[in-house]
Simulated scan of single mutants.
Amino acid sequence: MQTNTLIQLLQQSFHIGVGATASLLETFQDPQKRAETLSQFHQQFNLQTQQWAEKGELTEKEARRILDELLKQQKNSDKTGVQSPSSSDPSNSNIESEIEELTQQVIALRTELENLRQSN
């Protein structure tokens, strides 16, 4: 890394810190600006929670679809008398671990969404 680049990076970091501090002080001192900033923050937070909720819903649907497909495959293999793959089969254990991971993600997203809804 060149010395000039490092100095420029440090200088830019310093300017960012000073600018952020000045903006924060201006916001605290001006009631109108404070209300505007809080309103923007609230809108952004609401938008973000809505996006998280949509993503959680899509993740849940995808997890359910995968689980339904696996159950359907298992039922079909049971009906045809074909023995289902054993748990020692690497592809089967990969699928099981993916299902477990997706299930945990859905649970975490639901919990986070409920917490966000309760805080609003």
Rank of each mutant, 00 (worst) to 15 (best):
P85D: 06
Q11K: 15
Q44V: 11
E36Q: 15
V106G: 00
S91N: 08
T80R: 15
Q29K: 04
I16V: 13
E114N: 09
F41I: 08
I99P: 00
Q11T: 12
Q118S: 11
L71S: 09
I16N: 08
F41P: 01
K61P: 01
W52K: 15
V82R: 13
G17K: 05
V18S: 03
Q83L: 13
I7G: 02
M1N: 00
E26M: 15
R117K: 11
Q105H: 09
S39K: 14
E57Y: 10
G56R: 01
S84Y: 15
S77G: 04
I95M: 09
Q118G: 04
Q83W: 14
L24S: 09
R110H: 03
Q83K: 15
I95H: 09
S87Y: 12
F45C: 04
F41E: 02
S97F: 02
Q104R: 13
Q104F: 05
L47C: 02
R117P: 07
D30P: 02
G81E: 00
L71C: 12
P31Q: 04
V106C: 00
G17F: 03
F14E: 01
A108I: 05
E96Y: 14
N46R: 03
S87T: 11
F28A: 02
R110T: 00
P90F: 11
L47F: 15
A20G: 10
K33T: 01
L24W: 12
E36N: 14
L24H: 12
S23E: 14
Q83S: 09
F41W: 12
K55T: 09
E100T: 11
A63H: 05
Q83Y: 12
R64N: 10
Q83G: 05
S86A: 10
N94F: 10
T103C: 03
N94M: 08
E69A: 10
K55H: 12
Q105P: 00
T27G: 08
E101R: 12
D68M: 04
L58N: 06
G81W: 02
E62R: 09
Q43T: 01
L25N: 04
E96M: 13
T103Q: 03
V106N: 02
I99D: 00
N76L: 13
W52A: 03
E60N: 04
L6E: 00
Q118H: 10
Q44W: 09
Q40G: 07
Q40Y: 12
L109H: 04
K75P: 00
S87F: 13
S93K: 14
E100P: 05
Q11G: 04
Q2W: 07
T21N: 09
T80A: 14
E114V: 10
L116I: 02
L38G: 08
A22C: 14
E36F: 12
Q29V: 10
K72S: 10
T5Y: 13
E100F: 14
E54W: 07
G56W: 06
I16L: 12
R117G: 13
L70Y: 01
Q43D: 06
L71F: 11
L47E: 02
T80D: 08
R65A: 07
G56D: 01
S119V: 01
T3G: 03
K79D: 15
E57P: 05
S84W: 14
G17L: 01
Q74S: 11
Q8K: 15
F45S: 03
Q73W: 10
I16Q: 12
E26S: 13
L113Q: 11
